[in-house]
């Protein structure tokens, strides 16, 4: 899971450094060591524990591959997302500087994959939402989702850097399934550790979990991440490249042309009626860049509404 320096371009590395530092600045602001000094030894021990867990590679049967734990979810559950994120950042730095695992240019990307995605995306939006509905299984499900998302991010980062020769879909298709299996093991171990602590230090663990949960409410996380998504879709899309995407480029290279007609005419007819923002453009808007930005913004809102609808429907189905 750790990306080394040779696998990432300085430009992509710098972008992820920026994202990780912004999140770190926010986390540092939120962590008050003056009033919560008793959490410092816990953070140190948990950091060391996660460090040790990441060193142990286990074989994934039938794949010929091996994997190791991420540990971000465990840190977020026990320390809260802010302190958990800072602990993950610090242990990844120790690994990069003293143990040659990961790299310094790739540090931002590694922090993003194993820290931000687990502490600020999976923990508030998946674990906390599922915890009351699925009980203990929420930990396993969240670990699988976290590692899968991290592996997907690795594929995106290395592909953006231009170091991967394979098509993105093929590379991601290899990376993600293996990490879903590793996620199952990680989920099992995280569950075992949390259960053990729940059994032997129940009051302390309950306090830790309560502190962690009040640190970052799902609603607040949703607003923050929603804002970030809107900024990317509505703002950064303005500067998006007009060149064909990786898949189109690959098709062009192989077939020398992109087929105009769809294989299934009925499907094409449905798509023509349904796609109101064809090619991410708003109909009737002359400025193409503003049009892309607006379409992106509306698309983000629609995606958010669709996800909320799916979650609500699942809840109702379960109540019946």
């Amino acid at each position: 899971m750790h990306i080394s320096d040779a696998l990432i371009s300085p430009a992509v590395g710098a972008a992820f450094w920026g994202v990780s530092l912004a999140a770190a600045a926010y986390a540092v602001k939120k962590v008050d060591l003056q009033t919560n000094s008793e959490k410092l030894p816990l953070a140190g021990v948990m950091g060391a524990f996660t460090f040790a867990a990441q060193m142990i590679n286990f074989t994934i049967p039938g794949t010929g591959a091996s994997g190791h734990l991420g540990g971000g979810l465990l840190l977020a559950i026990l320390l809260g997302p802010h302190l958990g994120y800072l602990t993950m950042m610090s242990l990844l730095l120790i690994q990069a500087l003293f143990f040659g695992d990961g790299g310094l240019i790739a540090y931002g990307a590694n922090v993003f994959n194993m820290g931000i995605l687990t502490c600020y995306v999976i923990y508030p939006l998946v674990y906390k939402v599922l915890k009351n509905r699925m009980g203990k299984l929420a930990i396993v499900f969240s670990a699988v989702a976290g590692l899968g998302l991290g592996a997907f991010a690795v594929a995106v980062e290395t592909s953006l850097s231009g170091v991967v020769a394979l098509p993105f879909t093929l590379f991601a298709g290899v990376m993600v399934p293996i990490h879903l299996v590793i996620g199952l093991v990680e989920g099992g171990i995280t569950l075992a550790v949390v259960n053990y602590l729940r059994r032997f230090i129940p009051e302390k663990l309950a306090q830790m979990e309560t502190d962690a949960e009040t640190a970052f409410a799902p609603r607040k996380a949703m607003v923050s991440i929603g804002g970030l998504a809107a900024a990317i879709a509505g703002g950064l899309a303005y500067y998006a490249s007009a060149n064909p995407d990786g898949l189109e480029w690959s098709v062009l290279k192989v077939a020398k042309t992109i087929p105009e007609k769809a294989i299934h005419p009925a499907g094409e007819a449905i798509q023509n009626v349904m796609s109101i923002f064809s090619d991410y453009q708003m109909a009737g808007m002359e400025n193409a860049r503003i049009s892309v930005g607006l379409a992106g913004l509306i698309g983000s809102v629609l995606t958010l509404l669709l996800v909320m609808l799916v979650v609500k429907s699942a809840e109702r189905l379960k109540q019946r």
Binding site: V28, L40, A43, V45, G47, A48, M89, S90, I94
Partner: peptide, 19 residues
């Protein structure tokens, strides 16, 4: 680099030895 981060990093490093 903020003091908080440096402190956490040093704690983590020290506790690796303890562990």
């Amino acid at each position: 680099v903020p003091e908080t981060f440096v402190l956490i990093m040093m704690q983590t490093y020290r506790y690796i030895g303890l562990m």
